[in-house]
Nucleic acid binder design. Structure first.
Length: 264
DNA sequence: ATGGCTGGTAGAACCAGA
């Protein structure tokens, strides 16, 4: 017996403004579950009906006014496990659910961290590091097979950015962030599914700035979005894809969706 | 040539993203 499960993750940068491309993605890719970050809406105005019409009748929403916000929509049953505040400031950046097969699915939106990579000059950078420190503690204490997905806002490897040298001082690729994310990975022996299926140094980006005149031509991308799996869960993963074409759709997000398929 | 863009909300000479 084999059961397939397809899970997608996408920083959508306003789910209301981009509901048309979300619908297109769901029709074309048809994941069982979609984890969204930066929904930028309170739960009352989340476009629940649009997802319901496409079969995503199970919805766990964790929104807030204006910024941030995460959600998980699913064709299969799930129940909410927790919504953790790893930044300790009340922002909606995490929600975790449990599937009927026992898998724990955690959807996270790590803070961007502001402009200056120095916690003494830029409190947001300190908050990002503190957020990661709490995720390290959480990772150390995990006992359930878990899939952690979302926008980590860190591109860890040299080949995860268009220019390692030019981004060393740019928040998302600084040595302290990379080192901290490395400790988080070690804390649970997380398997980085992106690099499991697309080994370094192959090009693999999930984000391109809106400011480039032609994002594809300049190709100044970064791999900020990730799926990390417990060892047991990673063994069941059979495919992993990114959807770069979505970056060229009408009114695109600056992030693209990533998808992993499992066979249990 | 990274900040040149983008959305939300208010009604900005804003904030936040990364």
């Amino acid at each position: 017996m084999s059961d397939t499960l397809k899970i997608a993750s996408w920083n959508i940068n306003s789910v209301r403004f981009r509901i048309e491309i979300v619908e297109r993605f769901l029709r074309e890719e048809a994941p069982d579950i979609l984890c969204l970050q930066e929904t930028k809406t309170i739960n009352d105005t989340f476009p629940a009906a649009a997802f319901r019409q496409l079969g995503y009748t199970h919805q766990i929403l964790h929104g807030q006014p204006m910024h941030h916000g995460v959600a998980i929509v699913s064709k299969i049953p799930m129940r909410e496990d927790d919504r953790l505040d790893w930044q300790a400031n009340g922002e909606a950046r995490h929600v975790g659910v449990r599937l009927e097969n026992g898998l724990r699915l955690e959807n996270v939106y790590v803070p961007a961290g502001g402009d200056v990579p120095d916690r003494n000059l830029n409190p947001k950078f300190g908050q990002k590091l503190d957020f990661l420190a709490r995720m390290i503690d959480w990772s150390e204490n995990l006992s359930v097979p878990t899939l952690l997905v979302g926008d980590f806002n860190i591109a860890p490897l040299e080949c995860d950015v268009w220019s390692h040298k030019q981004l060393l001082d740019v928040v998302s690729h600084t040595p302290i962030e990379v080192e901290t994310l490395g400790r988080m990975q070690a804390a649970h022996d997380w398997v980085d599914l992106g690099r499991h299926f697309v080994p370094a140094p192959e090009r693999l980006y999930t984000w391109w700035s809106y400011r480039a005149k032609d994002w594809a031509a300049s190709d100044r991308g970064r791999r900020l979005d990730h799926m990390w799996a417990s060892k047991d869960v990673a063994r069941q993963a059979v495919d992993h894809r990114i959807h770069e074409a979505c970056r060229s759709w009408l009114k695109p997000s600056d992030h693209i969706p990533i998808v992993t398929e499992f066979r249990f």
